[in-house]
Simulated scan of single mutants.
Amino acid sequence: MDDLLVWLRAQLAEDERDWLPTATGARQNGKTTARRMLAEVDAKRRILELYDVSTSRELKPDAWELMKHAVRALALPYADRPGYRDEWRP
């Protein structure tokens, strides 16, 4: 799971690098889309932070499995990128 977290954070950083210049650009429609994409990156990072916090607490096995499944689901949009592993599919 640690490999997935590292890889997914790298994908989010790449998304952020790709969208940040557009968010400050002149076209309103593109700017709105870029802001939404950056908000998605932020939301996904927050979910990963919740996962990190949950690893230091005792969770019921079902709750732990749900957390792992959620993190795997976050990685699905990036399944076509290099480094994605089929074992990460939810």
Rank of each mutant, 00 (worst) to 15 (best):
M1P: 05
L4C: 07
L4T: 03
V6S: 00
W7Y: 05
L8K: 06
L8S: 01
L8H: 07
L8N: 01
A10L: 05
A10P: 05
A13P: 00
A13E: 14
E14V: 08
E14W: 09
E16D: 09
R17C: 02
R17P: 04
R17A: 14
R17F: 00
D18H: 14
D18A: 14
W19V: 02
W19S: 02
W19G: 01
W19M: 10
P21Q: 04
P21E: 03
T22F: 05
T24A: 11
T24P: 01
T24H: 10
G25S: 14
A26Q: 12
R27I: 06
R27C: 01
R27T: 06
Q28F: 10
G30T: 10
G30M: 11
G30A: 11
K31L: 10
K31C: 09
T32Q: 14
T32W: 07
T33S: 10
A34H: 07
A34F: 02
A34K: 03
A34W: 04
M37P: 00
A39L: 08
A39E: 08
D42A: 15
A43I: 06
A43D: 10
A43K: 13
A43E: 12
K44E: 07
K44M: 08
K44A: 14
R45I: 01
R45L: 08
L48Q: 00
L48C: 03
E49C: 06
E49Q: 12
L50H: 13
Y51P: 03
D52E: 14
V53H: 13
S54W: 05
T55V: 13
T55S: 11
R57C: 13
R57V: 15
R57Y: 14
E58V: 12
L59F: 10
D62L: 14
D62K: 13
D62G: 12
A63I: 13
W64G: 12
E65N: 13
E65V: 11
L66G: 12
M67W: 06
M67C: 08
M67E: 08
M67G: 04
K68G: 03
H69G: 02
H69E: 05
R72M: 07
A73R: 15
A73G: 09
A73F: 03
L74A: 02
A75S: 13
L76Y: 09
L76H: 11
L76P: 01
L76Q: 15
P77T: 09
Y78G: 01
Y78N: 08
Y78A: 07
A79I: 07
D80C: 09
D80E: 14
D80S: 13
R81L: 11
R81N: 06
P82K: 08
G83D: 01
G83Q: 00
D86I: 10
E87R: 07
E87G: 06
W88S: 02
R89D: 04
P90V: 05
